[in-house]
């Protein structure tokens, strides 16, 4: 089943995503469960408009970008291993100076 989730960007991270702060996206059906670890490459392929190195480093987000899953620190949710559920709200906040 396809998953509907909400992605939000702030602190300058939105500049890389079409300058839009809020994105409602539907994740396509996939054999395996969607995790943050598989969401990030998908975002890079389909959503990132420019400069992927400013958002990602290796297979994770760039240091200085805070990830909140339903208002909780992703470090408490298992980081890349968190499996995404329907209607999850994932926020990416850049804490870097100048985004």
């Amino acid at each position: 089943m396809a998953l509907r989730i909400c992605l939000e960007f702030s602190g300058g991270a939105e500049l890389l995503f079409n300058k839009t702060k809020k994105h409602e996206v539907t994740l396509p059906v996939c054999e395996k469960d969607w995790t943050i670890g598989s969401l990030l490459p998908w975002m890079r392929e389909t959503m990132l408009k420019e400069r992927p190195e400013l958002f990602m480093q290796g297979n994770t987000v760039r240091p200085g970008i805070l990830v909140l899953i339903n208002d909780s620190d992703w470090e408490l949710m298992g980081e890349l291993d968190y499996s995404i559920k329907e209607n999850d709200r994932i926020i990416f906040i850049s804490t870097l100076h100048g985004g």
Binding site: S10, G11, T95
Partner: peptide
């Protein structure tokens, strides 16, 4: 820390306005 600041803003719904600066989007 900047994380505490970001968390505080996010939990309190404090709005911040993003203005690019000299190094925005540079390598």
């Amino acid at each position: 820390s900047s994380k505490e600041v970001a968390m505080y803003n996010s939990l309190h719904g404090v709005e911040s306005v993003f203005l690019p600066t000299l190094t925005t989007k540079t390598h």
